[in-house]
């Protein structure tokens, strides 16, 4: 038997650090303009907290697009559902949320998170079966039908809970601030950073260390071959769609607590930001989505402080700059 020559060494695989350095560079550049270290630290931590919440909302959207090639403009519905579920779950748990102890507060917060995720996942299942499945591979129809789905979801929430903005109080122990280096950092924002990091690490572990993750990464590249290997990609689609919806629900709940209010259109309002984030990160890339979320949120906070007039357009400018540098986003998938 002739053994095929093992061949010459492959080109060394380079790790692309530039995108990772961007948030650090942005923070470093902003510091001298902001001046006071304490203000800079407050803004930076606020930006990171906001970024982690946006990441939770957007990570599901990027996975759904990457694997299923579905442009889901209805993703905001799951964000709103998550927000309302926070309110629903907190009502019977008021004794826990109003206690002074953090651990007792968490006894209310964790079940509320799980409820928000489970309900959003269930809504995602129905959404996929009824609206998305008939339009696989048809982008224009996907946009129209998922936007329609978002409107129906919003109106249903209005019908169920009323049109008014509903105030939502933070659990007692999460109100107020802690002081770090002279900077006041809201306790809830620290929790948001922790939750966002946990979500990111769990996603990274799942994608890189489990067979389900391998299947998702392979499915993003070549669905047909995954099926030819004997795996049912449709089941994977549903699983990923539900997981993406659950993450949006979690993000929506975190966002509602951050804003201390709930209304049905809050998910729709976040859609522009989530799309900017996944475009900056590279469609389908979880790592890119993480960096994109941090960049967008940091910029909003810095711009809001330094040049409030351009804060509203700062995300668009950032997206344009990133796409001029890397037209397929920070971490494009090789298959797209």
């Amino acid at each position: 038997m002739t053994a095929i020559d093992a061949g010459t060494a492959l080109p060394r695989q380079k790790t692309d650090f530039w995108p990772i350095l961007l948030p650090l560079a942005m923070a470093a550049i902003a510091w001298p303009f902001i001046g006071a270290f304490s203000t800079w630290l407050t803004l930076t931590l606020a930006g990171l907290a906001m970024g982690m919440m946006i990441f939770a909302m957007a990570s599901g959207l990027t996975l759904v697009f990457g694997l299923m090639d579905v442009l889901n403009f209805g993703h905001g519905a799951f964000i709103s559902v998550g927000a309302y579920l926070a309110m629903v779950a907190f009502t019977p748990l008021a004794a826990f949320t109003q206690a002074d102890s953090l651990s007792i507060n968490l006894l209310a917060l964790v079940p509320a998170m799980l409820l928000a995720m489970a309900t959003s996942a269930a809504v995602g299942y129905v959404f996929e079966r009824l609206l998305v499945r008939p339009v696989y591979g048809q982008h224009l129809k996907q946009i129209l039908i998922t936007m329609g789905g978002l409107i129906v979801a919003e109106q249903t929430l209005y019908a169920l809970f009323g049109p008014q903005i509903i105030p939502l109080s933070l659990p007692t122990a999460l109100r107020g601030s802690l002081e770090f280096g002279g900077a006041a950092v809201e306790k809830y924002r620290l929790l948001a950073v922790v939750v966002g990091l946990i979500v990111f690490l769990c996603l990274q572990f799942m994608l890189n260390r489990t067979k389900i993750g391998l299947l998702i990464r392979a499915g993003v590249e070549n669905k047909e071959m995954v099926e030819a290997l004997g795996y049912r990609i449709r089941r994977l689609f549903i699983g990923v769609f539900m997981a993406g919806s659950a993450l949006a629900g979690l993000g929506g709940m975190m966002w509602a607590l951050y804003r201390e209010q709930v209304h049905a259109s809050m998910g729709g309002e976040m859609m522009v930001l989530t799309f900017i984030v996944i475009i900056i990160g590279g469609l389908g890339s979880v790592g890119g989505c993480f960096i994109g979320s941090a960049l967008v949120a940091l910029l909003v906070n810095y711009a809001g402080f330094l040049v409030p007039k351009i804060a509203l357009v700062s995300n668009i400018l950032l997206m344009v700059a990133v796409l001029l540098w890397r037209p397929r986003g920070l971490y494009p998938l090789s298959s797209r």
Partner: peptide, 18 residues
């Protein structure tokens, strides 16, 4: 060929071994 180029050689074979 339809190999999964973002996956390693090992991961390609792990996936093929159902």
């Amino acid at each position: 060929m339809a190999i999964f180029s973002d996956l390693t050689v090992r991961e390609n074979l792990v996936l093929a071994a159902r």
